[in-house]
């Protein structure tokens, strides 16, 4: 395999997207001369039934040293496309140095109806906060 990708395709971002181009061209070597320009593109026709793109949640790290923060969601057919879509949708102005995409269905969340009981434990436990301890007020460096 040519180390620089498909020799017939220019070394651009487009050739990067079409990384498998040489293999496809090889298997269709005979037909590609007679087939119409769209020849190779029609080969995966078996999979054309309308499949809605699934939902992905996008997390963006705005700069080094910060955690990824939820930015929004989008639709994509797979993780690679989700990452590209996320880049185009959520980082048009250098908003990020790293992106995570997570299938929305993979996220488990606490039940919104049980918020009271689920988060009950820390309630009434003010002693977990520094502000609970007032006797040290005025003492330096404490």
């Amino acid at each position: 395999m040519a180390p620089h990708g498909n020799p017939e395709a220019p070394a651009s971002a487009a050739s990067e997207i079409n990384r498998e181009a040489p293999k496809v061209a090889a298997t269709n070597a005979d037909s590609s001369t007679t087939a119409p320009a769209s020849g190779p593109a029609v080969t995966p026709r078996g999979a054309t039934e309308e499949t809605p793109w699934s939902l992905w949640e996008v997390f963006v790290r705005s700069s080094r040293g910060l955690s990824h923060v939820h930015a929004g969601s989008l639709h994509a057919p797979d993780a690679a496309m989700a990452l590209r879509n996320a880049r185009d949708l959520y980082t048009r102005r250098n908003e990020g140095v790293s992106i995570w995409v997570v299938p929305a269905e993979s996220i488990s969340s606490s039940d919104p109806d049980s918020k009271g009981s689920f988060f009950e434990s820390p309630q009434g436990k003010d002693y977990r906060h520094a502000t609970y301890y007032t006797k040290s007020e005025g003492v330096k460096h404490l």
Binding site: A41, P44, R45, G46, A47, T48, E50, T51, W53, A76, P77, D78, A80, M81
Partner: peptide
């Protein structure tokens, strides 16, 4: 066709 091709490509990769 772009949306369909993207789905087909994703399926093939998988």
């Amino acid at each position: 066709w772009v949306r369909e091709a993207a789905v087909a490509y994703a399926r093939k990769q998988a």
